[in-house]
Design a protein around this nucleic acid. Structure first.
Lengths: 138, 138
DNA sequence: GCTCCACGGTCTACAAAGTGGACCATGGAA
DNA sequence: TTCCATGGTCCACTTTGTAGACCGTGGAGC
């Protein structure tokens, strides 16, 4: 539901894109906040990226990412499962085997993410330069 | 610098995009982590969006976003300034006036962000459905 | 038979990060 | 004289994340 723009709403529109009018505050549904709720945490994005090429088990994922704690990985995966980004399959064997894989929704989410990652990769030198300039000023 | 792919590296590549090979771990420069360092926090993205249409003063920004604390807004702005996304201009008046505006770098960053926000807007129903299904299963 | 390991987690202290509100100096308006 | 607004910082408190112990099961090695 796309309601009329309130005075303080942001009209987030750009070349070649459909315009998007939205509030910034938490009360109404703000798409930016939606995005942040999904990927704004430390780990979700890394998990999705790790699962992109292949289905992985819990402990493999843990080692692949490296510095995530079991608890956070567990939570992150549950939230991603809840939101329909990731599918969890339990094989009732001993020792237990649990596999995580991307759903179509999760896969489609990575599409726009790629653009963002490429941006970061391309503009990293500019960011570094800005930081150096800032340190020099201060 | 784009080094050769280690076995556990993710080859993050998609239709119509330049491939990107990267580690997921924190040691090497992982572009995903770069992105997260920049926008992964609660507020940076909202600040950038708020500043997109117009230059704003500190307290206006504070009220516009609504539920950000002074401290966090202050920190967020300083970090964005440091990274070259935002420009800070102080007018030596009384009471003090400080204005924040986007730099070209900041503006260019919002470009790929738009795609992500549109994704969130478009796929929100699917996410809701996934959540409902999850609750029903549980 | 006895010990040890791997599996996918959860639980529990502890540490780090975020919050809301008080506080600062200044000058203009009421 | 009192009060407000400015752009912050500082402090106590709460929330969030971390590292590591722990769980039950079964198979491998001794």
């Amino acid at each position: 539901m796309q309601s009329a723009a309130a005075p303080q709403d942001v009209i987030f529109e750009g070349p070649g894109h459909t315009g998007l009018t939205m509030p910034l505050t938490g009360e109404g549904g703000c798409p930016i906040r939606e995005v942040l709720d999904r990927i704004g945490d430390q780990w979700s994005l890394l998990v999705l990226a790790a699962l992109e090429p292949e289905t992985l088990r819990f402990n493999v994922l843990l080692r692949r990412i490296g510095d995530v704690s079991k608890q956070m990985l567990s939570r992150t995966l549950r939230r991603l499962e809840e939101d329909g980004f990731v599918e969890r399959t339990v094989y009732p064997e001993v020792p237990p085997r649990v596999e995580y894989s991307l759903t179509d929704l999760g896969r489609s989410f990575l599409e726009p993410m790629r653009a963002l990652i490429r941006w970061a990769d391309m503009h990293q030198p500019e960011v570094e330069a800005a930081r150096a300039a800032y340190r020099a000023r201060a």
